[in-house]
Design a protein around this nucleic acid. Structure first.
Ligand SMILES: [Zn+2]
Ligand SMILES: [Zn+2]
Ligand SMILES: [Zn+2]
Ligand SMILES: [Zn+2]
Lengths: 137, 137
DNA sequence: AAAAATAGTGCAACACTGTTGCATATTTAA
DNA sequence: TTAAATATGCAACAGTGTTGCACTATTTTT
């Protein structure tokens, strides 16, 4: 039950939150606001969906993924993120055929040479290519 | 003179094109449409600026950089890109303080483990942190 | 159990990014 | 210098995302 997740993160349990979280739990790809809008059973105000996504983001339930489209997508945080810290330094993949974006939660981002004068806080790696389902045999 | 660049890429030499290209030549950071709008001397229609950026993109004069803001930024292509192929597989850095985005043209993107079933065409790597100018001493 | 405090939702409005269609203007080549 | 090709400006639009405010629902306090 997703209710525990809300309790853990100090969010009130509401219909839209349950529905939106279910979308992510049942999806293996990152979802945008408009994806969510299509997936929901009940109709909710656009703004409410945005606010739901933002509160999930803030609390560490979701993380944000940017692909080359400029539209924000979201995916579940796998490793205990919270409102103080996110730990989502994994690789993302975008299929150029079906446009699906997926998390490679377990693929480490390789080390980079140290940059003189720059401090590094976060690395974002997006791989673009063709996913197994879209491969031409 | 930037005119040769236009001739090389089969673009007519116009005022806006010269001005926009100058912005990039004189800038060491990636620029967005609205950055450009502020930098231009003459006033041009927003749409014309978009079209200028898109034609430069298409011809391989500029490449597109996406940071976590979702707004497209552009930067000069360094290694002879053209309308058939871009070769801009380098690392980008975004400073979390000043928000400037810069190209690390010569930093190679490290190799990733091969992914079963996925084919990789392009890798996009954005490093976020603090640039030398924004470091607190 | 009722009242007060807190948090969430819906609506209207807005700002910004980016695109398209079409008429007009400018370049370039003949 | 004219015709063809290309570029620009304007109007309109679609999509993404935010804010303010009134209203509603949920918790907490009394
Ligand atoms: Zn996270
Ligand atoms: Zn992810
Ligand atoms: Zn390029
Ligand atoms: Zn670059």
């Amino acid at each position: 039950m997703t209710d525990n997740i809300f309790k853990k993160h100090n969010l009130r349990i509401t219909d839209i939150r349950k529905e939106v979280l279910d979308c992510f739990v049942q999806s293996d790809i990152a979802l945008s606001h408009s994806d969510i809008e299509l997936l929901l059973f009940k109709e909710y105000d656009r703004v409410t969906i945005y606010r739901t996504l933002n509160s999930f983001l803030e609390k560490g339930i979701l993380h944000k993924v940017f692909d080359d489209s400029g539209v924000a997508k979201f995916a579940l945080c796998k490793y205990d993120c919270n409102e103080h810290q996110h730990n989502d330094n994994h690789v993302h993949f975008k299929c150029e055929v079906c446009s699906k974006v997926i998390c490679f939660h377990d693929m480490q981002i390789p080390h980079l040479p140290v940059l003189k004068g720059f401090s590094i806080h976060h690395i974002n790696l997006l791989v673009q290519g063709v996913c197994p389902e879209c491969q031409v045999q």
